[in-house]
Amino acid sequence: MESFFEKMKKSFLPKYKEFRLSLHLMNRNKLSQLSMIILIILVVAAILAPYIAPYPGDIYGEVHMGSALQPPSKDHILGTDEVGRDIFSRLLQGTRISLACSIIIVLICAVFGAILGAAAGTLGRWIDDVLMRITDIFMAFPPLLLTIAFSALLGASLKNAIIAMMLTWWPPYARLMRNSALTIRERPYVKAAEAIGTKKLRITVKHIMPNCIAPLIIQASMDMGAVILSLASLSFLGLGAQSPQPEWGLMISTSRAYFLNCPWYSIFPGLAIVITVLAMNLIGDGLREVLDPKTKKN
């Protein structure tokens, strides 16, 4: 008889092979390969931010009025802000805030939406109707406006902005999940499972949900970027992060007062946003190519 370990290895190996194949397919696209590298660098930067920042003290409250608004130089490679803090150090910490927020928001929204969508798709009847009308209503608001309203009413802070975003970002996931659940539900392997006598919950969790996950992953990877953008916009309006938090949108907002004379102060945080969001969108694009059955067919 095979040992337990051997069995685990045998069942794990094909899964690993599949993963390698997907990775290989995605790496055919040079842009998404590059974005992958950028993203890895960003994640590392985010994790290590307080330790690798050249001026860790500048990340939050320190003030060096003597070196305020200096252009990029050897000491401060991206210059300094209005109270003399090193912009590069603050940007590094900003990576941490943005990535963490977007991961938390997207993850929670995706899970919540997926469960709701799966319930709507598999239970059907009035549950489906009610849930889908609710998502319709949420999606009838222009995207950021409802979030602005929520976070304004909750009070301006990063925490409240995150809560407001969570309240408004789940509907697309619910709808995606529900639509694919409706398709998958009719697949013969689900019928076969029903004929076997598998319980409904097990069918939903083991058969339907794993096969609906692809569009969800694509949506999530695209949303990571969109969430970062929206969070920056909220902060820009004064609703998200509060000074002295080194949030990118907030930095741009503060820099507005000085931007004609000290362009670096506005430009670099913006570039950070663009690069991060672009990398995430490109990865989403690459994932779509790999996961979408339409493109995988041949």
Partner: peptide, 27 residues
């Protein structure tokens, strides 16, 4: 239900594409 089983027409969609054969046959 054990006593009545079904084999479907389309061999592509009748097996869950995300499962290993041992899980499919053993379900």
């Amino acid at each position: 239900r054990k006593d009545v089983q079904i084999v479907f027409q389309d061999p592509y969609w009748s097996l869950n594409p995300r499962w290993l054969v041992k899980d499919i046959i053993g379900e």
